[in-house]
Amino acid sequence: MSRVKAPKTPGEPVTWKKLKKNRFVYLMLLPIAAYFIVFSYYPLGLGLVNSVQDVKILGNATFCGLDNYISVLKNPQYSQAFLNALIVGVGTFALQFVWGLAIALLLNEVRSKVLKSVVQSVTYIPYLLSWSVVGGLWMMLFAPTGMVNGFLQAISSGEFTPIVFMSEPKFARAIMIFTGAWKGAGYYAVLFLAAIVGIDPSIYESASIDGASRLRQIFQITVPNIVPTMKVVTVLGAMGVLRNFDQIFIMGTSSILDKVRNLLYLIYTQGITQFKVGPATAGATLVLIGTLIISAVVRKVIRYDDTYED
């Protein structure tokens, strides 16, 4: 968001003439304001109200204070979902970060434009796709007759029994982390590459004159110079850690769900399938608070807000 403040114009009264002059602008604002009131502010208010109410399918809701919040905090399902979300979320982020950075650094060494754009496109395309596509694709690959088992069979000697990856709880989180990073690595690579392209070439020139090898330049010029982008990526990633729904909704088969069911998925099933509106909205509010806390902590740890101070 822009940090530039508009210059204040004190003492200018809001006159009828001014309002009238801007009537077209207000007319433009009308549908937007109406939309936001109905589809953003109203649900937010409704959620806050519901989170302190005992909502019943029949009959009136009654005020119950913080009971919903307490029941959520005490509910082991929620703490398990929090743990699952955290493990898969942080794992995915870390792998995707390293993976994307590696692609970006390697691509930067490629000089053929055609090759560069082919590799970039292929690595980026999964990011464009829906989780139903990426999840479906990997579930097929991990199926007993899928290609992963095909590879394992090809390299194994002797008797081979296919592994049913998608129903094996011990692989569940690893699969979510891997597929999550697979989908997003190309996107991070694009972000890192954009930052690399922006580095002042004269830095490399003087390093070359000083006789620094290319490898040394990569680690002592390229990497340090894209730290600001790494920080932005980290903060954005931190905000998404607890908010992964699509992947688990598609790939969470019943036999592995206990290992990967995350907060949003739990809230969805509780609130929409089981009509436990009160606890579900309280849970959603807690996720929002958790997200704010996590991103505040991450900002502090990586000294995000210092980066751009003049």
Binding site: S40, L44, R243, G271
Partner: peptide
């Protein structure tokens, strides 16, 4: 307008459903 960016749609899911 900016405040609406702070309201993540996925976290108001249940209320969105009710609305």
């Amino acid at each position: 307008i900016m405040l609406t960016m702070m309201i993540p749609g996925d976290l108001t899911l249940i209320s969105v459903y009710q609305m």
